[in-house]
Design a protein around this nucleic acid. Structure first.
Length: 106
RNA sequence: CGAGCGGACUGCGCGGCCGCGGCGUACCCCGAGUACGACGAGGAAAGUCCGGGCAUCGCAGGGCAGGACGCCUGAUAACGUCAGGUGAAGGCGACUUCAAGGAAAGUGCAACAGAAAUAGACCGCCGCUUUUGCGGUAAGGAUGGAAAGGCGAGGUAAGAGCUCACCGACGGGACGGUAACGCCCCGUGCCAUGUAAACCCCGUCCGAUGCAAGGUUGGGCUGUAUUCACACGGGUUGCCCGCCCGAAUACAGCCGUGAACACCGCUGGAGCGCACCGGCGACGGUGCGUGUAGAUAAAUGACCGCGCUCGACAGAACCCGGCUUACAGGUCCGUCUCGAAGU
RNA sequence: GCAGAGAUGGCGGAGCGGUCGAACGCGCACGAUUCGAAAUCGUGUGAUGCAGGAAUGUAUCCAAGGGUUCAAAUCCCUUUCUCUGCG
């Protein structure tokens, strides 16, 4: 399954309006069933300087990529990290897997 | 050996594996396809504080207003930058720091204190007069950031550049230097505080807007209304003059419609490296070599192994030249400086 | 990315070279009024260090650091943070 990016503003507002939210310790996941597998990460200015924001985005993208193959059905996914002091790949990966299992997507 | 000063450089490395970005090549089921290949953030990419390129509006013509800079000479595309000097301040020294023009063009301001603040007599001192006042005086006291150069001697009723020496200031001249300025000589008893990062004066410079600039495609027709060639409307920098345009704007109807989109701008440029030549230097010239990010919800990460000093500040967004600020450490250079010891 | 504005007591917000620790309003504390409360009226009210039994006195502080000036919340420079506009 090809992994695509969500880019248009219309798609973002559609997910935020109709999607389902799932909360974990390190992040919040918003998802909506669709015909294609697409995702995006949401990292605004409140998370820190550009270096910090880029770091968070990379970790989230990598964590999602690692677990995306486990998904049964294609859907639109939005990853929103919880603002804090420490951000780690392992925490993100663990929580993504946990949410997929809990919501019976995987 | 210890403590410094100045300058230059560097900014974890190597291997494996799964991914990311545009580019090139190949293949196919031609599509936001697949495979392979080389390449892929910084010294500050930052702050946006200056200067340019570039682009559009315009025509850039003038005046006023406004802004920036400010010792001298040079470098440069340009600068508020850089280099070499001058002066002042600091350091034993190597060296470092400085918005460093003009206060006899004018205006303003200088609270409180103090007798008095750009002008003067409170105490004191001296003379006259006799209960007190009048005059002289800027040595001393007291206030203040500042009280009409400082200090010593002469002089005097007491004093005072009143006179003289030295220092300072101002004016003139000679010499050296492109110049800032330095140095020497002569003269003037010395017309007079500070502030120009207060207004200002003098000199030099500045059109406006910033890639969300801007360009390509983004349709055509009809009707109505308003304003208008005897100076009205619109545009032009804040204002005035002047100049430019001849049409502009709004609404309605019909067909057309991806449009907060796509492509261009978008990286070959005052480019980088080396050598030689000119120059104290900034820098310039010549020759040879080199091809080195270009995203747009926005590319560098995860895991494993090894090494060590255990990895700081930090992420390109049109491009350059500077400035400023942040930064774990490490390396190199100097007929550099001071101190100690030895010879 | 580009352009611009601001930061003053617990909060809002004047002051823009001297008498300014700083107007005014809100809040807070105490008092009056009331059986009690609200409303109203009056008085007071910044923080920290040092001295003092206390009253009080004194030094520093207007985002932070430096500069100009006799004197800076105010003028100049640098930094930090906050806010606004721009197809």
């Amino acid at each position: 399954m090809k992994i695509l990016r969500i880019k248009k503003k219309k798609e973002f507002s559609k997910i935020l309006r109709a999607g389902k939210r799932a909360h974990a310790e390190s992040l919040t996941i918003v998802f909506l069933p669709s015909d294609r597998l697409k995702f995006a990460v949401c990292v605004g200015k409140k998370y820190g300087k550009s270096v910090v924001r880029n770091r968070i985005k990379r970790l989230l993208r990598e964590a999602f990529r690692a677990h995306a193959r486990e998904l049964k059905a294609p859907c639109l996914v939005l990853l929103i990290p919880r603002a804090g002091r420490e951000y780690s790949y392992h925490a993100f990966a663990r929580d993504i897997a946990k949410v997929f299992k809990k919501e019976k997507l995987a």
